[in-house]
């Protein structure tokens, strides 16, 4: 009896402590986004005085409306959206088609072709040669520089190929007997059956496109109108931090600098919020697919 009581006490302690830890860590993950949000909708003077910490005060949406008047931001949003939509759909179609082709036993040198693609996952030439190469191919300062280099994704091809191999072969074969060609089989049989895996790679591909900014920094230097939203946000944050550094260093600062730094804070926070929202919107879909994708990833091609 005594031992039993001690055990439940220990149990309770355990549950309390680890529950507390998880609550704290979860808050740490979720609170910053909430904090960003309340700081973009509260009275700007209170925000800049650091007065908005737990609850919004003086709610208004001027900041979001003000962003509509920033031309840079509109361009950057269009670029981000179009690269995400176009880049993801092309990548998914390519992965699906290659994934299908490499399951076709009759292909000349099928294994070599497959290995030739997959092996590129394990080496890369490095950032600078990659950049010089893209430049040589005329894709710098060019919107297609976001899309074409990211078309063939070996890992996604492995996922699709593994998935197709798990489907019953008879479906394909009977279609071939009925006289269908490869394109018909791919479009009418393989694509519909592969929806779950294609959704998985689409979601991950879209998040990747939406989030990437290094390629924008490296490739689009001469054409600011091709910057992505993330790159623009990075520029704003950098400016704001540099101004803050100047002010803390007690350097030569003018009232204009102070004003710019303060405006920079509001604008940066609002742009950050605008950039996070699409991720939060597709997040439920990811929840559904990511575990599946992860599990498939464990299966080697």
């Amino acid at each position: 009896m005594h031992t039993h009581l001690k055990k439940t006490l220990g149990d309770r302690m355990f549950s309390c402590l680890s529950g507390l830890f998880f609550v704290l860590f979860t808050l740490m993950c979720a609170f910053p986004i909430y904090y960003l949000f309340i700081n973009t909708i509260s009275d700007n003077r209170l925000v800049l005085a650091g007065q908005i910490n737990l609850f919004p005060r003086g709610v208004h949406f001027e900041n979001y409306l003000a962003l509509l008047r920033v031309n840079d931001l509109f361009d950057a949003t269009m670029i981000s959206v179009s690269r995400t939509v176009l880049g993801t759909s092309i990548m998914v179609l390519t992965s699906a088609f290659i994934g299908y082709l490499v399951t076709q036993q009759k292909m000349l040198g099928r294994t070599i072709v497959y290995r030739f693609i997959v092996i590129t996952m394990y080496f890369n030439a490095g950032l600078i040669p990659w950049f010089l190469n893209i430049m040589m191919l005329g894709l710098t300062n060019n919107f297609w520089g976001y899309i074409i280099p990211a078309m063939v994704q070996p890992f996604n091809i492995i996922l699709v190929k593994t998935y197709i191999e798990s489907l019953p072969k008879e479906l394909e074969e009977s279609a071939f007997i009925d006289g269908a060609g490869h394109f018909t089989v791919f479009r009418a049989i393989i694509m519909p059956l592969c929806k779950p895996i294609l959704a998985t790679i689409a979601v991950f591909g879209a998040v990747g496109h939406w989030n990437s900014f290094i390629d924008s920094i490296i490739l689009m230097g001469a054409r600011p109108e091709l910057r992505t939203l993330q790159h623009l946000l990075y520029t704003y944050l950098n400016q704001a931090t540099n101004l803050a550094r100047l002010m803390q260093g007690g350097g030569n600062i003018t009232a204009q600098d102070v004003q710019a730094a303060l405006n920079g804070r509001i604008v940066s926070l609002t742009v950050a919020m605008v950039t996070i929202i699409p991720i939060l919107l597709v997040y439920p879909f990811m929840q559904r697919y990511f575990q599946k994708g992860l599990m498939l990833g464990a299966v080697k091609g």
């Binding site: 986004i33 960003l36 700081n39 989030n211 993330q230 790159h231 946000l233 704001a240 926070l269």
Partner: peptide, 12 residues
């Protein structure tokens, strides 16, 4: 979320 967004969280 991207590292830029993580930085904007840090910034905030």
């Amino acid at each position: 979320i991207s590292w830029v967004l993580v930085y904007s969280v840090a910034f905030a």
